[in-house]
């Protein structure tokens, strides 16, 4: 059984009396251990899809099952529990708590998981070590560079040992060199067996990943794998979204 299954997922937003179909019938399955790239132009529905996958939102219609849990009907608390323990989410804009230092930011998911303080500290240290920030334990996000912030966010995403990590344009706010380093980090995580889904604008990044899915107007373009590298120009850097 696939780790993630989507069947005819739709997400419609109402703006005034206009209906916007951000997702217009997405069917997809992701196996455990996959390292998947989602590409597509700005406004094509990538973030909307990621939010559904990350249990941050629920679809208007369709079926979404993650690790055996039917997300399309799950309660609010069940979604919280999914986000907390089965899913790690990395945002383009890091979304760290500016008042907390690195250690406390990474500890936070475990606080909501009810992990004892001592264990919390140990596991947070492990995760921080993994992203190479042991020398920054007590800095706050404001004292860190963008790349370092994203590392903290990744540490936070993996600290509860989730089955799958979703990253929505994690390199979007970083220069290409730093972005490359972040991508390497994801690659390492994937190599150690974690399922990872990453949204990217960067064609060269996507091209190096084993599986790519291209989105267009709220749908998945079929037969993308071969076409990705020679598809018509993808916007190099899009600032909106996330």
């Amino acid at each position: 059984m696939p780790l993630v299954e989507l069947y005819d997922i739709r997400k419609t937003y109402r703006v005034g009396d206009q209906e916007i179909a951000a997702l217009d019938g997405v069917t997809l399955s992701i196996e455990a251990g996959e390292f998947l790239a989602i590409i597509g132009p700005s406004g094509s529905g990538k973030s909307t899809l990621m939010h559904l996958l990350g249990c941050l939102d629920t679809p208007t219609s369709g079926r979404l099952v993650i690790d055996g849990v039917d997300i399309s009907r799950a309660s609010n608390d069940a979604l919280s529990a999914m986000r907390n323990s089965k899913i790690g989410f990395v945002f383009q804009s890091f979304n760290l708590l500016p008042k907390f230092d690195v250690l406390r930011n990474v500890e936070l998911p475990m606080v909501y998981a009810g992990v004892a303080a001592k264990v919390r500290r140990e596991r947070a240290m492990e995760a921080i070590e993994r992203v190479g920030l042991m020398n920054r334990l007590h800095n706050t996000p404001l004292q860190l560079s963008g790349g370092q912030c994203q590392r903290v966010a990744i540490a936070r995403a993996i600290v509860n040992n989730p089955k799958i990590v979703f990253a929505d344009e994690p390199t979007g706010n970083l220069d290409s060199h730093t972005g490359e380093a972040i991508l390497t980090l994801f690659r390492e995580l994937a190599a150690s067996g974690r399922t990872i889904v990453i949204v990217t604008h960067d064609n060269t990044i996507a091209a190096r990943l084993p599986r790519r899915i291209e989105m267009r107007d709220g749908r998945i373009r079929l037969g993308v794998e071969a076409q990705v590298s020679n598809t018509a120009p993808l916007a190099p850097i899009a600032k909106e979204g996330a």
Binding site: S80, R83, L96, Y112
Partner: peptide, 8 residues
Amino acid sequence: VRRAIGAR
């Protein structure tokens, strides 16, 4: 952020 990382 708190909600996103699992706060109910």
